[in-house]
Amino acid sequence: MTAAGGNTRVGIIGTGVISGTYLDHLEVLPGVEVVAVADIDLERATEVASKRGNLRAMRSEDLLTDPDVDVVLNLTIPAAHAPVALAALEAGKHVYGEKPLAVRRTEAEPLLAAAAARGLRIGCAPDTVLGTGIQTARAALDRGDIGVPTAATASFVTPGHERWHPAPEFYYQDGGGPLLDMGPYYLTALVTLLGPVARVTARAGSAHAERTIHTGPRAGTTFGVDIPTHLTGVVEHTSGALSTVLMSFDIWASRMPRIEIYGTQGTLAVPDPNNFDGEVELWSPQAGEWRALDVAGGYAGAGRGVGLADMARAIRTGEPHRASGSLAFHVLDVMESLLEAAERDQPVQVLSTVERPAAVPLGASPDQA
């Protein structure tokens, strides 16, 4: 199921803001070719297609049955991730989606089962962990630069997405919140670096019962908050390392690091996992100061969609793909377990597990490595 030139043909469902970023990067990524776009609003899909020149706009149900589409790129809102992905799998299409894989584990489990039964692939963002930032940190850990990793911190804070997003309500409804919105970047990075998670504990709350939109035609409109907007948790990796996680929509500013990893022989400062690149710094007792590490792995110049290109190559070669449904499911399981731990006020065992995805070698291309 590939085009004559060997490219994997992609159809996008969901033409909101993030679709533009994906389209920009997929146009230059090897091994993939976007051939169609669809949306619940056909006019919006038509407008997006017209700006790209060679894309077909269609209804979602038509894209699912289109024989010229090999992979469905699911860019719908979080609440629609699972039903759209399941429909694509049932139509015989591979699926790659935005994070999270689903809003609930119970929605995600049928996706993995359907893909396995049909011999299809599921991939899921974030694929930022495949860039040079996280992969250089991975190489440093695998080299033993900080000895045995024993702990980590991961912190994302903001005063709220309503300050920049013209329609932010979904961030504050079921399936939203700082953990499900930004947690996938941080937890996927932690699993990539330190391995799977065995147990979690957490506390959560909300600073505001209502939020006010600050930008766009609905500026000044208020709306209610339905979910926790601040969470602090401890994540216990199967390796024994302990990661402290802070995710908040309630904090104006912070000087805490995005991610730091602490080992028996030093400390590693890891760049923002929402980006593909960034400087990795090492502090060791021998040097007694921070020093920047040379890039040692990852897809250079990567952008949104590199995980899809990596999956397309893996489909052609029969190899495992890195931004996998299994990894996304484990991260979802960890996030839901953190919310459960906060609600129950007790530790929660994480029942799923996953192997660390293969490292991305220095100089690799997504259509070759």
Results as ranks from 00 to 15, higher is better:
E236S: 12
G131P: 12
D39F: 02
T264K: 08
T353N: 09
F329N: 07
Y185A: 10
D310I: 05
V157G: 01
P320D: 04
F156S: 03
A341I: 08
V32F: 09
T317M: 08
T46L: 01
T132Y: 13
E260S: 13
P228Q: 02
L64W: 06
N275P: 00
P366C: 12
N74P: 00
F156C: 06
D294N: 02
A198P: 11
A358S: 15
S284T: 15
I13F: 03
T150N: 04
H25D: 12
A342I: 08
D39G: 11
G20V: 05
R121E: 14
G233P: 02
I122Q: 10
A364C: 11
H330T: 00
G5P: 10
S206P: 01
H208V: 00
P126G: 07
A88M: 04
R322C: 03
M335R: 12
A113C: 10
D367M: 11
E289W: 13
M247I: 02
E162Y: 03
G297E: 08
A189K: 02
A369E: 12
L338Y: 05
E210F: 02
E210P: 02
V334L: 01
H230K: 12
R105T: 14
R255S: 15
L55G: 13
D66K: 07
P285Y: 04
I12V: 15
H165T: 02
Q286I: 03
L242N: 07
M311Q: 05
A202W: 14
P347Y: 12
P168H: 03
F223Q: 00
L190P: 11
E343V: 09
L141C: 11
R313Y: 07
N74S: 13
V354G: 08
N275H: 04
A328K: 13
T46I: 03
S50T: 10
R218D: 12
R59S: 06
R356H: 05
A167G: 11
A108W: 04
R163D: 07
E43S: 14
L26D: 05
G325P: 14
D181K: 00
Q349R: 15
Q265H: 15
S337V: 05
E260D: 14
I261K: 07
R44M: 02
R105V: 14
N7F: 13
V354Y: 01
Y96A: 00
A45E: 01
Y185S: 13
F156M: 07
A189P: 03
D345S: 10
R9V: 06
L351V: 13
L338V: 12
A287D: 14
G6P: 07
F170K: 03
A115P: 05
V103F: 04
I134W: 00
A108D: 01
R258V: 10
A154W: 08
P361T: 02
S239R: 00
A38H: 14
D226G: 05
F249P: 04
N7D: 15
A269I: 01
E61F: 01
W164L: 05
G11P: 12
S239W: 00
V71M: 06
I227W: 08
I12F: 02
A207L: 04
W252K: 00
G363I: 11
A87C: 06
E47I: 13
Y299K: 10
G305M: 09
R59K: 14
R356M: 09
T158I: 01
T317Q: 06
S206A: 08
A79R: 03
V306L: 12
G131D: 11
L242Q: 15
